[in-house]
Design a protein around this nucleic acid. Structure first.
Lengths: 338, 338
DNA sequence: TTGTAAGCGTTATCAT
DNA sequence: ATGATAACGCTTACAA
């Protein structure tokens, strides 16, 4: 059985209140007493029971992190940064991987709230559904604890959003490719999450403002059952055989872009001479392919730092911005000419 | 303020004991009463306070997961599988990223234990140090809760290890490459963690048993400051310029193998005709490069499933194997000829 | 500066 | 089948 504050108080010959004060760094305790107590604590290796502490403090010093799949290369980075940041501020992270099913998210959110976390972080824009009803769980959660959303926007009291301006980033990247002379640009995506939509909007806006003809024909949605890079590249091959020619591919994430590169390689298309490819997220994958992938960096680390700062502010009772937007930047590598 | 069991008991006009029984699915409660209570609970959306519950149950139904860096492609997968598995069995996951510094691990371990987790999972062989003193924290932890170690072996009471036989996997892969006619095989690694050592041992054993001459000259350790793929490939280039020729590279993980591929591409060496490359972990990176990477699959999902099963057994008071070893399998792709 | 005692929200052991 | 009530380990007024 673990030691309790009573054991320590007995051994140190003081009351439990004094031990508690020492533990919590109260200034109202004589230096000699503090030392006596600390010595006992160190000697016996006592650590306070955080459940009991939570009951007194009404805080677990724990933040719930929900993400669809923590092994996703983008989400994993986000979770890592968040955990590091929270840790540095004395908070633990309760991680929950919900999968991409909307229904289960509500359940997980409730579950994690019952753990009496001090706040909730939703990592990834896939937590925002398209209907009001789908998003009701976010409102429910926000009634109990502050809810932070990374990479999506949702306006509600006690809900705070940190995101990258995906639409603008995509608009600028598309424009830059267009201005370099590539006017037939294929847009490759898989799911239309909140940020997925914004990216597509950015592409559309750019193509439209450049008066590109019939660009809607060059929007390629990968079927849901095409999960692997190989399946995706096969699908692009099939799509290309039916569509009009294109000399650029902009993908909604790096993995799709890699699949685009594979498509080119299988079909003897030279990158970047005959085809430019551009990805999103600036992940490690950009360095793995040949040629290396031009990609948009969404400043994930900056975003997570801002998120934690905002959360801590909210928990401290300060007024905090409900929406913080960063802008992405284009990292040019060898799959593009511009 | 959140509702408590008292609020519910008042509204339902029963005692808190009855509410608790309903909550915990006790058979000793009349169906009508159960329904009455459940209706109130649903109506008011009550969820029990898990800290208070933990005090009564003496269990948080939470497992602490320690890993150096949850954004590492291998560790992220492991964390994901573990979380999913634990979730499915009613346990939450408290994630802690410790970094690779040995000292901080002890602190994190203590911290997480103070949260009164029911068990501790150390993910990755980097949690095993080379001296007895470095590993003392594991023994200390095991005095309080069962400690599970993924990917390393450490013999002690209440410590359970699940791992892949890295040495044997590496031995077999090296042998297979050797037998295919490539006798000058470079071994590329960065750190010598527990599994890092085993892999190197496997390479050495294979080279030795084939009577390969002077293979020690072909063991290439990447300096600690070479972190990026580009820096590693540059280092290999430099190493190659000074070493005798080699026609195979076996790397301790996929990222190093990708760097090896980059080295070949930069130097106009054709893969797999002039150089065979083999990685480890069978991660998504194997699909990103061209040609696609042959790699050893360490059966991570199987390992994590076994780990959780063992942990649950231990928590249920059953006798469980202290060491469970799986064997890896070679996944052949296009960076090798055999 | 220190101690006493009343919570905090559960579970579990008694009675009834 | 249900209700009192002690126990869990801590924090924090309030007293001394």
């Amino acid at each position: 059985m673990s030691l309790t504050i009573y054991d320590i108080s007995k051994k140190a010959d003081v009351s439990i209140a004094t031990v508690s004060r020492v533990l919590n760094g109260s200034p109202k305790v004589k230096e000699a007493t503090r030392k006596k107590v600390m010595d006992i604590i160190d000697e016996y290796g006592y650590t306070p029971n955080s459940s009991a502490r939570a009951m007194g403090l009404k805080s677990m010093k724990t933040i719930g992190i929900l993400c669809a799949d923590s092994s996703d290369i983008f989400l994993a980075k986000a979770v890592y940064y968040l955990e590091q940041n929270l840790q540095a501020h004395g908070y633990e992270s309760l991680l929950c991987c919900t999968g991409y099913n909307m229904d289960s998210k509500k359940n997980y959110a409730n579950l994690i709230l019952s753990k009496k976390v001090d706040g909730l972080i939703l990592v990834g824009s896939n937590f925002i559904g398209s209907t009001e009803e789908e998003n009701q769980y976010i409102i429910d959660c926000s009634a109990k604890v502050p809810v932070m959303i990374l990479n999506a926007s949702f306006r509600h009291d006690n809900v705070y959003c940190i995101l990258c301006d995906d639409m603008n980033s995509m608009y600028r990247a598309t424009s830059e490719m267009y201005d370099s002379g590539i006017t037939d640009i294929l847009y490759l995506y898989d799911v239309l999450s909140y940020s997925g939509k914004k990216k597509l909007d950015g592409y559309r806006m750019a193509m439209q403002s450049h008066h590109a003809p019939d660009y809607e024909d060059l929007i390629c949605k990968v079927p849901d059952d095409c999960k692997s890079i190989e399946a995706i590249s096969d699908y692009v091959t099939e799509f290309a055989s039916k569509s009009r020619p294109f000399h650029g591919i902009i993908a909604a994430d790096d993995q799709l872009a890699i699949a685009a590169i594979k498509y080119a390689q299988k079909n003897g298309i030279s990158i970047p001479d005959d085809l430019s490819v551009l990805g999103y997220n600036n992940s490690i994958l950009t360095h793995c392919c040949t040629p290396e992938l031009t990609s948009i960096d969404s400043q994930l680390e900056t975003q997570t730092r801002s998120l934690v700062k905002t959360l801590l502010g909210v928990l401290a009772g300060q007024e905090m911005p409900q929406k913080t937007v960063f802008s992405g930047s284009l990292i040019k590598r060898s799959t593009t000419n511009f």
